[in-house]
């Protein structure tokens, strides 16, 4: 989930899409729609595999995106996602969207805190967590919640290379290690 492994090409794609969104004046909408798209994509491994499979016809993969998200996102968002698939970078789609979100937050002098939890955090919890992270890290953060049942309970926060793990899964893992 970190950005360290992301290629320079993915960063360029992210910058290009962000510039298009700014030029069209839909940066915030595009950013939010891509966050939702990314959340769905990470919760559906099969969908991610289909979009990344170069053996499947491009039109068919783009058709899958249109069928699933036409009613939920703007046409430009569908077009930009189709652009990435057409360019043969379907396997880097999640990295491009992550980089786009980071670049957009950086444009607002903030960093993205990716929070994984078994259940969604309400707005109050997100605000308190953002405030707590600001106090702890010394900079403004934007909370990006990802639903991950493997966490079992609690929260795992990733900011860049830093991980703050308060999940039940982590505690069970520690107990497993101590017993072994």
């Amino acid at each position: 989930m970190t950005n360290t492994h992301i290629s320079e090409r993915a960063k360029n794609y992210a910058d290009g899409i962000l510039k298009i969104a700014r030029a069209e004046g839909i940066q915030n909408e595009l950013e939010q729609q891509l966050k939702d798209f990314l959340a769905i994509l990470r919760q559906n491994q099969e969908l991610m595999t289909v979009l990344a499979d170069s053996d499947i016809d491009i039109d068919r993969r783009i058709g899958v995106i249109r069928d699933l998200f036409t009613d939920q996102v703007q046409p430009l968002t569908i077009t930009l996602l189709a652009l990435v698939i057409t360019a043969g970078r379907g396997n880097e789609l999640t990295d491009i969207i992550d980089t786009l979100i980071d670049r957009a937050a950086a444009g607002r002098n903030r960093r993205v805190a990716r929070v994984r939890s078994a259940l969604p955090l309400n707005d109050k919890q997100q605000a308190l967590l953002a405030e707590a992270l600001k106090e702890s890290l010394g900079f403004e953060v934007e909370i990006h919640v990802l639903i991950d049942p493997s966490v079992i309970g609690g929260v795992v926060t990733e900011i860049g290379d830093r991980i703050i793990d308060g999940s039940i899964r982590n505690r069970l893992q520690q107990m497993r290690s101590s017993v072994h």
């Binding site: 919890q125 967590l129 707590a132 106090e135 702890s136 609690g154 308060g166």
Partner: peptide, 17 residues
């Protein structure tokens, strides 16, 4: 319990800050 765990986590992050 989830809510309580998240609140505890936020408190811990806040306390460390």
């Amino acid at each position: 319990t989830h809510r309580q765990l998240i609140d505890d986590y936020i408190d811990q992050v806040s306390a460390s800050g």
